[in-house]
Design a protein around this nucleic acid. Structure first.
Lengths: 354, 354
DNA sequence: GCTCGAGCGGAAAACGTTTGCTAAAGAGCC
DNA sequence: GGCTCTTTAGCAAACGTTTTCCGCTCGAGC
C-alpha cells in the first residue's frame, strides 16, 4: 500500500506517483488519470511521517492549555481545530493541569514530534523550557502568559477596557462595596485582571481592597463568597476573575439564600457559552475565544509559511467589553441590622415542599 | 542535532547512540555515560517520526469526539491524555461537530498519520469509513455508538439500570406525568436512553409517550420545556437525555418562573462535573467519564501491545446509577385551574428592584 | 601459545517519502 | 533531415532512526 506498490501497479516510477498525488502539474494528464485510478482502487494514503521526514515540516501545531476541563478552553480548541483542518494541519493537544512535570513532558513531546509551532495557553511555564523551544527555532505564540521576549508572538488582552466598564456599571447601580475574586496568584493573566480592577476602582474613587483569591474554578467561587460573607460589612457586588468563579458564586449564593441580583450583583469574565445559561444569566466581560484562537493560529501559520520573524508584526491585542445580562441590579438599601443577619442559610437537604 | 551528530561528537556509531537512548543494556556503562553526556549537552531529542517509520508504530492514538465544546467530552479527553502521557502515547484529537465531511477528514487524517488505534465517540459515522480503518487493521474501539461487528471493541453502557432508578425515584415522589427529552434522533446512544426510559415507564405502569426531542445542548433543553408547557396537561417531571439538556430546562424554567423542584422535577444524565453546580444542584444519572476513558484507552493499548484480537475480551460494560441532588421533589398537588395559567412569565429585562 | 566463547560496538539495510538532476522523446525551425 | 528547445518521466540521494548481522577484543581453558 505504499507509494512503490502504487508505482508498480501503475507501471510508473515513485517520483511520478508522488507528483500526481501532490498535484504537481508537470505530469501528463493521461498518465495522471491512470495513476489516480490505481490510487483510488488500492486506497492509498500517503504516509505523513515519511513525508515530514524529507520535508522537514510535520504540519503539526502544538497546543498547550492549562486545563481542558475548564469550559473556556474547549471553545478555543474547537476553533483552533477548525482552522487546522482547513489548512491541513494537525493539532497536538496537551493539558498541563498546572503540574510542572506535565509542562515539561508537554514540551518534550512537542519537540520529539517535531511540531511546526506551539501555542501556549498555560502559565507558570519555566523559562528554561521555553528556551528549549526557542533553541530549536520552533515558532511560538503565547496568549497573555508569555514573557516579554522580543521575537515571540504574544497576544495581549486589553483587560482594562472591559473591567473598567464592569466597575463603572456597578458604580452606576450605586454599589460602593465591590469585591474582586482573583484567579490563582501565579497566573499572570489573573494578575492583570486584578490590576485592571484596582485601577478601575481607584479611577472612580472607590477602595479596591476587597479582594479574595480563588482558583478559577467553581469551587473557588463558592469558597470566596463564603469568606466574603463572614465579613462585618459584606460587599453588595462581586466581580470575578472568570466565569467559572462566578458560577461558583451563584451556586453558593443559592445555598445561602442570597438573591441574585437583588441582594448581590455578580459579574463574570470571559463570556463563555455557559454564561448565557446560568441562573440568572450572567453579566460578564466578553473576550472572544474565537478571535483568540484565530489570532494564535494565524500567527503560527504566518511564521511557518512566510518564515517571517519580524517582531513588530507579533503584537496582537484583543479587546474586551461588558455584556449585560441579569446578574446585576441596583445596590440593596442599607438595612439597620448588619446585612448578614437576615440571610438565612437554606437547608442543604433535598427540599420536600408541602 | 540528529543521532549522527551525537555519534560523531561521542566518537561512537549511531547504533550505539540509539541503544543508549533506548536503554538497551548491551552497552558498556562507561560508554553509555559518555554518550549521555553528549546527548544532554547538545539537547538531543530523538525524531519520533523517523523512529515511527522504521518501527511501524507511531505511538499515536486517535480520539474522535462529536463536540469538544460539550462538557461531557473534555473530562474524557483529560483522562485519555493522562493515560497517554503515562504510556508514552500521543493523542490526535478531532471533533466532528456532527458534520459528515469532518468525519471523513477525521478518518483520513488518522490514517495518514498512521495512528496505532482509534477511539470513536461520535455517531453517524458511515460504515464505509469504518471499513477503511478496518482494512488497515487499525485497532478500533467504539463507545456505545459502534456497529455490532465482531472483532471491534465496543463499550456498552447499561442505561437501563440508571434510568430505571430515575423513573422509580420520580414515581416514588408521586409523579405520574413524566416527560423525556430525547437526544438527536440519529444518535444511537440517545436512542438507547430513550428506549430505557420507555421500558422503565411501562414496567411501573406509566405511559411513556410524553417525549420531545432535543439536541443534547442547552438550547434544545430550553425549547423542549417550552414545548412541553404548551401542552394541556404539562408534565410534573422531566427526565433529560443528558445534563446539558437539563441545564437548558433549568434555565427555561427560571425564565417562566417555574420553581424547581417545587413545580417541576428535573433529572439529567451523565453526571458531568457541572451538574453539582447548577441551581438547584442536579439530580442525575451517573456514568463515569473517567472509567469510560480508561476502558477505551486500555482496550486500544492491549490490542496494540499484545496484538490480541480475541473478540471475547472486547466486551465491556459500564454501569449507571442515580445520584440524588436537589432538582427533584414530591409532585405538586393538582390545582383546579390548568397548571399553566398560574405560571407567570418573568420579564426578560434586567430587573431593577426597588 | 593456541583455541574458543562471551561481550560489545559498528556497518549497512530498511522504513516511505520528495526532488534535483538527467535523459528521452517529440515539436518546431531552418 | 538535422538541429535546438521543451516537455515529461525516471534514477537515486536524502531525511533520521532501528536493528540484524558480523567482526573485533579479551580472558579463560587447555
Amino acid at each position: 500500500m505504499d507509494i512503490r506498490g502504487i508505482a508498480r501497479r501503475a507501471k510508473v516510477s515513485t517520483a511520478t506517483v508522488s507528483r500526481v498525488v501532490n498535484r504537481i502539474p508537470t505530469v501528463d494528464p493521461q498518465l495522471a488519470k491512470r495513476v489516480w485510478k490505481v490510487v483510488d482502487e488500492l486506497g492509498y494514503y500517503p504516509n505523513t511521517q515519511a513525508r515530514a521526514l524529507v520535508l522537514g515540516r510535520s504540519r503539526i501545531f502544538g497546543l498547550i492549555v492549562s486545563e481542558i476541563t475548564n469550559p473556556f478552553f474547549p471553545e478555543i480548541v474547537q476553533t483552533f481545530e477548525d482552522l487546522a483542518v482547513k489548512n491541513n494541519y494537525e493539532i497536538l493537544l496537551t493539558s498541563t493541569v498546572h503540574d510542572p512535570k506535565r509542562m515539561e513532558s508537554s514540551v518534550r513531546r512537542m519537540i520529539e514530534r517535531r511540531v511546526d509551532g506551539v501555542a501556549i495557553l498555560t502559565f507558570g511555564m519555566e523559562e528554561s523550557l521555553i528556551e528549549h523551544l526557542r533553541d530549536r527555532k520552533v515558532p511560538l505564540v503565547f496568549v497573555d502568559v508569555g514573557p516579554d521576549v522580543p521575537g515571540i508572538a504574544n497576544i495581549r488582552i486589553n483587560y482594562l477596557n472591559g473591567i473598567r466598564q464592569a466597575v463603572q456599571h456597578l458604580a452606576a447601580l450605586r454599589h460602593t462595596r465591590i469585591a474582586f475574586i482573583a484567579g490563582p496568584q501565579r497566573l499572570k493573566s489573573a494578575g492583570a485582571r486584578r490590576e485592571a480592577f484596582e485601577a478601575s476602582m481607584k479611577e472612580i474613587g472607590l477602595s479596591p481592597d476587597l479582594i479574595v483569591v480563588g482558583d478559577h474554578r467553581m469551587e473557588g467561587g463558592m469558597n470566596a463568597l463564603l469568606a466574603l460573607n463572614k465579613l462585618n460589612d459584606p460587599p453588595t457586588a462581586v466581580l470575578c476573575s472568570n466565569d467559572m468563579t462566578a458560577i461558583g458564586v451563584l451556586r453558593e449564593a443559592y445555598e445561602q439564600n442570597i438573591k441574585i441580583p437583588e441582594d448581590l450583583s455578580v459579574v463574570g469574565f470571559d463570556n463563555i457559552h455557559l454564561a448565557e445559561f446560568t441562573i440568572p444569566p450572567l453579566t460578564t466581560v466578553q473576550m472572544s475565544q474565537h478571535d483568540l484562537a484565530k489570532i494564535a493560529f494565524n500567527a503560527l501559520l504566518h511564521e511557518v509559511e512566510d518564515g517571517s520573524t519580524s517582531p513588530e508584526r507579533h503584537n496582537y491585542e484583543l479587546v474586551t467589553g461588558l455584556v449585560l445580562r441579569r446578574s446585576t441590579a441596583l445596590a440593596p438599601k442599607k438595612l439597620a441590622a448588619t446585612p448578614a443577619t437576615n440571610r438565612v442559610a437554606k437547608s442543604r437537604k433535598t427540599p420536600v415542599p408541602q
